[in-house]
Each structure stands twice: as C-alpha cells, then as structure tokens.
C-alpha cells in the first residue's frame, strides 16, 4: 500500500483486534493496555508524524529476495521451535507449574488485593516496573532531545488541526470530564480490576490530546504547559524511586513496601498505590509531551 495514512489506520485496527484477542485469552489488563497504547497512542503519534513527513510512499526499487530469505529462515526457526511446545491452553504445561501458581496462591495473603497482575507488576516484579517507567521516561527525554528545542513553535490558540467542527466540539466537551474521571477510576481501582497507573496515565493524556485536537493548539497547553511536562515526568519517577528507597532507611531491601505501615499487608497495599501513582504521573506527562512535540512542530518546506 502506498498510502501511509491507510497503513497507519490498518495498524490501528490490527492493534484493536489484538486487544480483542487478548481479552479472549483472559488477559484483561494487557487487552486494556494494547487498546489504549497500540490502537490509541501509537496511531495518534503515527498520524502526527505523517503530517510532518508526507503521506505517500514511493515505490521501492529493491528486489525483495534477500529480505524474503531472512524472513523465511527466521520463520522456519520459529516453526521448528514450536514443534516441541506444549499445546495452547494445556494446564500441565511447565509454564503454569513453577512460579505462576505461587503468585496465584500467595498474592491474596501477602498483598490483600485480588488483581494478581497488579500484585506481580507492582510488588513481586516491582523492579521491572520501575525499569518500564524509566523506559517511558527515556522515551520522553529522547523525543525532547530530538524535537524539543528551537522548532517547538508558538502555540496558536484557537487554531485546530482538523478545522472547525461544532458537533465534535460539543461531543468532546461532554466526553472529556468522563474521560478524566474514568482515568482516575482506573488509576485508583487497579488492585481490584483491570487497570492501573499506566493505563490511567494514557487515558488522562488522551483526554488532553482530544481537547487539543478539537479546541485548538494552545488551549490544552494553557491547562498543562509543555515546559512542565519533563519535570512532571521526572517527579513521577522520583515518587516511585523514593518509595523504594524508603525501605533502605529501615534496613530492608529496595522496594520492600512492608515498612510503610505496621501491618505488612497494609504496607504492601499502600506501596502499590503509591508506585502506581508515580507511574500514572510519569506516563501522563510523557505521552502528552510527545504529542505536543510532534503536533507543535511546523512542517518545513
């Protein structure tokens, strides 16, 4: 397909279908994230970049033989690898035997929260999640380094990327409070249902992006100025990091939340809430700043 706009939309659809598939495979949290990130954020970023780089692709001149060969060999290796795999959904597979049952059995007593994904994410493998938040932070930092300075351009209040859309304005005006409220719900409800800081941050940022798209550049930037965002993201990381370091003061290993309260279970619950808050702040700031950086840039002749 030569039209990159169409390719981007197809990709969005693919992500949405993937999210549906995840739901079918009982991965509610992942489905939620894939829908918000793959179908939402990635598509928005793709479209914002296409605006700057041009919509049409040239017909390639290369012969596709070598890439086909590489792909063929890789695919064959993958299929070879699948030959000895346990079957899909087999409860006896080694994958379901060793570490995973421990989480399902012990998480309720150790954390006191029903969503095991959140328990593993924020506590058992909390260090990975700190790393993940840092990856997001790094992405925001990188985009800032690449697009941050000179060409940022002044915002043009009232001027919108999509033109005057009275109906859309009304719809969005009604929707935005609900989106932001929903984001808060997702943020605070992550221990009980699907969701958590990451998804909440993305949804919150999406609300702002919608506002920016429909009501014009500048309006959203008045509510949340672009220059705050890197610092806000840094603040989010430091919230996470200080919760981790706090344990050190009490002679416990990094990210041990039990020191946060008398009762270890309450401490862990509180720790999870706090780090999710840090994640939410960081993700919100980074997603919005990347959007600002791409959408605020003028196409150069």
């Amino acid at each position: 397909m030569r039209d990159l706009f169409a390719v981007a939309m197809m990709f969005g659809i693919y992500s949405l279908l993937t999210a549906a598939l995840f739901m079918d495979l009982d991965a509610a949290d992942v489905a939620f994230t894939e829908a918000a990130v793959g179908a939402g954020v990635t598509t928005i970023l793709l479209l914002s970049s296409l605006r700057l780089t041009g919509r049409w692709e040239r017909r390639p001149k290369h012969s596709p033989l070598l890439p086909l060969l590489v792909v063929g060999v890789t695919g064959a290796a993958l299929v070879y690898g699948t030959l000895d795999m346990p079957h899909l959904g087999d409860p006896q597979a080694p994958v379901h035997q060793h570490v995973a049952p421990h989480y399902i059995e012990n998480a309720p007593q150790e954390m006191g929260i029903p969503n095991i994904v959140t328990a593993v994410l924020a506590s058992y493998r909390g260090f990975d999640t700190l790393g993940e938040t840092l990856v997001i932070f790094t992405a925001g930092l990188s985009v800032f380094l690449l697009l941050g300075s000179r060409a940022g351009g002044r915002p043009r209040p009232g001027k919108t990327a999509i033109g005057e859309q009275p109906v859309l304005r009304l719809v969005v005006k009604v929707l935005i409070p609900f989106i932001l409220l929903f984001a808060l719900y997702v943020q605070l409800h992550g221990e009980y249902g699907a969701g958590g800081g990451f998804q909440a941050g993305v949804i919150f940022a999406t609300g702002m992006v919608l506002y920016d798209l429909v009501f014009g550049e500048g309006d959203a930037r008045l509510v949340v100025p672009a220059r705050w965002l890197p610092r806000l993201a840094a603040f989010g990381i430091l919230v996470y990091g200080s919760v981790g370091l706090y344990a050190l003061l009490h002679g416990r290993p990094f990210l041990d939340y039990t020191v946060l309260a008398e009762d270890p279970m309450v401490g862990r619950h509180l720790g999870i809430l706090l780090v999710e808050l840090g994640i939410g702040i960081c993700v919100f700031a980074v997603v919005l700043s990347i959007f600002y950086a791409l959408s605020g840039r003028r196409r150069q002749p």
Partner: peptide, 25 residues
C-alpha cells in the same frame, strides 16, 4: 541490613534516579 549489603543496588540505582533529578533541576 547495613549499607554494605545494598551495594549491588546502589551501583545502579544512583545513576538511574540521578537522571530524573537532572531533568528536575
């Protein structure tokens, strides 16, 4: 645990958290 037990962590967490501090300042 005293400080010596935290060495593997300290070696990586110091630069890791110093990065956001740089941005914050």
């Amino acid at each position: 645990m005293n400080l010596g037990d935290h060495l593997p962590l300290l070696a990586i967490i110091l630069p890791l958290l110093a990065a956001p501090v740089c941005v914050l300042i």
